[in-house]
């Protein structure tokens, strides 16, 4: 990629970012997510059998993933189809901008918005967790229990993992949207792909079992290559709340696997979009 191509991609990404942050869906999900994260302390009466901080953290992680996935799928498809339906893509591609640059710019713009979404929500969650941990600690000490702790660095690593997870979802949706004819189909297929990604570990577990037939093994092998494992980014509890933390290198290996899947889906999206009639 030449410097000119990079400049053009950056320019498209910048426009896409500005367009995306102005969307009502982004503001709505961000505000709703922030409100739920703050109010999670009030939901602690629902908590049975586990620490209050775990409940608050899990609630926050759940919101982050649910709203983040929704945002990644809908915003990616919507921003691409808006360009195609309004014919602005035609005008843009008539200039010396390649289809791959256009698509990459779109992806980077969306990914940047998702980064903003994650940083804001994780900051709020960190504030809630640290405040509650400080409030609970004296009570726990007085009762002779080990005071709960929150690992802020672990939360930062978790945020990075979530950014990668949402990046994969955006790239996957872009790939589906590049080949699909309608916005609705892209969104539905994107959400189903997220569901598949969340359940991909079943195929991965199947591969480790010795008594699996050739057909099942082949199917599982294909599924583990074609569908990304989105559960591997779900280690927030270990990173943020547990003193032992996650095993060394776990986050790094998840990031490596995630970045390879992300790149693969971007390549596939570019390959499909090149053949698309606009």
């Amino acid at each position: 990629m030449t410097m000119d191509a990079l400049r053009r991609t950056h320019w498209i990404a910048r426009i896409t970012f500005l367009e995306a942050v102005r969307q009502r869906l982004f503001s709505f999900l961000l505000l709703l997510g922030a409100a739920l994260a703050v109010s999670s302390v009030a939901f602690r009466f629902l908590n049975f059998g586990h620490g209050e901080l775990k409940f608050v953290a899990d609630f926050g992680f759940g919101i982050l993933f649910l709203f983040g996935s929704l945002l990644a799928v809908v915003m990616t498809a919507q921003l691409l189809y808006a360009e195609l339906d309004n014919r602005t893509a035609l005008t843009l591609l008539a200039k010396p901008v390649s289809r791959s640059e256009f698509l990459l710019g779109k992806f980077l713009g969306v990914w940047a918005v998702l980064g903003v979404f994650i940083v804001l929500l994780c900051s709020i969650l960190a504030g809630v967790l640290l405040t509650r941990a400080a409030e609970i600690a004296p009570v726990a000490e007085a009762a002779g229990r080990v005071p709960p702790s929150v690992n802020a660095a672990g939360l930062a690593i978790f945020a990075l993992l979530q950014w990668m997870r949402l990046g994969i979802i955006a790239a996957l949706t872009l790939f589906l949207a590049a080949g699909a004819r309608t916005f609705l189909f892209s969104v539905v297929a994107g959400m189903l792909a997220v569901l598949g990604g969340q359940l991909q570990w079943l195929a991965q577990d199947l591969l480790t079992k010795p008594d699996v037939g050739f057909f099942q093994r082949s199917l599982a092998w294909f599924a583990t290559r074609a569908v990304p494992n989105l559960q591997q980014f779900n280690i927030g509890d270990a990173l943020v709340l547990e003193s032992a933390g996650a095993p060394a290198g776990a986050a790094a290996s998840a990031l490596l696997a995630g970045s390879l899947h992300l790149l693969a889906f971007l390549f596939l999206a570019c390959a499909l979009f090149r053949r698309r009639e606009i």
């Binding site: 049975f48 409940f55 899990d58 992680f61 759940g62 993933f65």
Partner: peptide, 10 residues
């Protein structure tokens, strides 16, 4: 589907 597991369990 996500970290909402604890809430769904409750």
């Amino acid at each position: 589907l996500g970290g909402l597991r604890t809430l769904v369990a409750d």
